[in-house]
Design a protein around this nucleic acid. Structure first.
Lengths: 309, 309
DNA sequence: AATGGGACATAAGGAAAACTTATCGAAAAA
DNA sequence: TTTTTCGATAAGTTTTCCTTATGTCCCATT
């Protein structure tokens, strides 16, 4: 026995509406025998007559009426599903699982989410915050759709799109505010407080100071920029933080900020996703959204800094 | 652009479950390229990727997950619809519109409905009570599925199945109880009260008395057997009623019942339906149900009469 | 009663869709 | 490297589906 097809349901509902094979066939844009055969096939598949073919009059059977109602419901659902798919060409739908590193999450995330929900209403955004290697792994495993990290990641499986460049500033104790900004050689002699192993920001800071990242250091490691800044405020040492963190982190500590002359230390923040992800176009859309928004983020950041006490 | 097909949805959900073209194809009992092509076709129709084909791993896209859920829902509905149809082979489903003539409705209908709901649970029974010509018309027009009338109707478009034979009894005033039962010739000289034009029972009574049914009569016509019996009780004349009506109608009137010697007046009650109705098998089932139940109906009727005062 | 026309079913052949096997290419595993 | 795995592609065949032409039945007309 053959199977029910959507074509049969479409033909059936049209015939039910018209009550006339010839006209229904015309409405279906097929010939009358083609319609007859499909209906016959449908009735045989069901094992039940749907129409009562009396001379000159075509009538739905009792079951036919029930069948029509349910067939229409199914066709509605199918069409709706097709529409949904077609709507998801340009508009991102459903769930977006986004990963972000901890050294930018607290400062950027609120704005990122605000921009995303603004640009893609109805999008279900899920955020995961952890360090780059883990994000990369989860991205590979399909647990994430995209991640916001420091570039480059240099994984050939990922697409990388730069979003913004952020400079690092030196955080010293408030009492050192008037001292000259140290150069790299001086820095190496100071007690540099850094994030624990695994944070890319740690490596970036070490790299700026030309310190090999593998070597064990006698310095104390913090688990967040906040902690580091508090430690600096306590007079334990100096540290770096990204420009965007300044406004938030230096507000409640006895620290001062110093900016380096060119070449300033900096890192590029960007978005990555699987090269194989078919939503490349939409993800690129998102990246562009961020790119445009990023100027705003930095301006606000700068403004915050300017008005900070 | 091509159209969505159920086949594609089935293949898709299988592939989504297995996450592997080869095994999914096996599960679908087709070759792997056939599955690949259908999935590709589906994705092109939708204009959206459903799977992310990374090397060695097959993963649903975000939209794919949404799509899977809805596709499964549709397939469930379709399968349920098929099952419903298959279940309606032997079991009558949905609505049964049944017509019945007024001269049996009051006595038989409660039992008919009880028997039907017993034998076909879940059946939605709708009853229409009117005279035979109107029933026949409505049956022809598809407003009724079947009718219970006096046979024969002799319409070649209808199937007729006899259910039971009911005899007519003479209803006279209580004071005439001891008088001999009149023969047909005597009857013609009495004042015979009959139902108004259109009731088949009227014609059947006239026929028994060998009176042409077309001729205008000076008798008073009643619109129901109840009325006629009450008129008899008031001493206005005599009338016939069917055996089954005796118990109900003679309870509250000053009348007596007389039965004729053979050949007793009688009529055959039967069920009719459109010959073209594809539910012939089920309707025949119902007729058989009535046929079996009819013995019970008549017994109860006789018992009622025996115990009547 | 014969005839004409409307309406659906059936028949036969051809176009389109779907499936098959065979093969390719890329990526992972050995 | 070579081998294996897995999905895509190619080519050819089967099946499905649709077309036109024709048949059959029933009603309406004469």
């Amino acid at each position: 026995m053959s199977h029910l097809t959507l074509k049969q349901l479409r033909y059936f509902t049209t015939l039910a509406r018209h009550g006339h094979f010839g006209r229904a066939a015309e409405a279906c844009a097929i010939s009358q025998p083609a319609l007859s055969m499909q209906i016959k096939e449908l009735e045989e598949t069901l094992g039940t007559a749907l129409f009562e073919r009396t001379s000159r009059k075509l009538r739905l059977t009792g079951f036919g009426e029930i069948f029509e109602e349910r067939a229409r419901a199914i066709l509605r659902d199918v069409d709706a599903l097709g529409d949904l798919a077609r709507a998801s060409h340009d508009r991102l739908v459903g769930r977006l699982r986004i990963g972000i590193i901890p050294t930018i999450a607290p400062y950027l995330l609120p704005r990122i989410i605000a921009d995303l929900t603004g640009a893609f209403p109805g999008l279900d955004i899920q955020v995961r915050e952890t360090m780059t290697p883990k994000l990369a792994q989860e991205l590979s495993d399909g647990l994430l759709d995209t991640a916001i990290v420091a570039l480059p990641v240099s994984d050939p499986a990922f697409v990388e799109v730069p979003i913004l460049t952020e400079t690092f500033v030196l955080v010293r104790h408030l009492e050192q505010a008037e001292q000259p900004v140290p150069d790299r050689d001086k820095l190496r002699e100071m007690r540099l407080l850094l994030l624990e192993e695994g944070h890319c920001f740690r490596d970036q800071a070490l790299s700026f100071c030309s310190i090999p990242s593998g070597r064990p250091r006698e310095g104390l490691d913090g688990s967040s920029l906040s902690t580091l800044v508090q430690m600096v405020g306590a007079g334990i040492g100096v540290t770096f933080i990204p420009e965007m963190a300044v406004a938030v982190e230096t507000r409640s500590a006895r620290v001062s900020i110093a900016r380096f002359d060119d070449p300033q230390p900096s890192r590029t923040i960007g978005m990555i996703w699987r090269r194989s992800n078919p939503l490349a176009a939409q993800l690129d859309d998102i990246a562009q959204t961020f790119l445009k928004a990023a100027r705003g983020w930095q301006d606000i950041s700068a403004a915050n800094h300017a008005t900070a006490p």
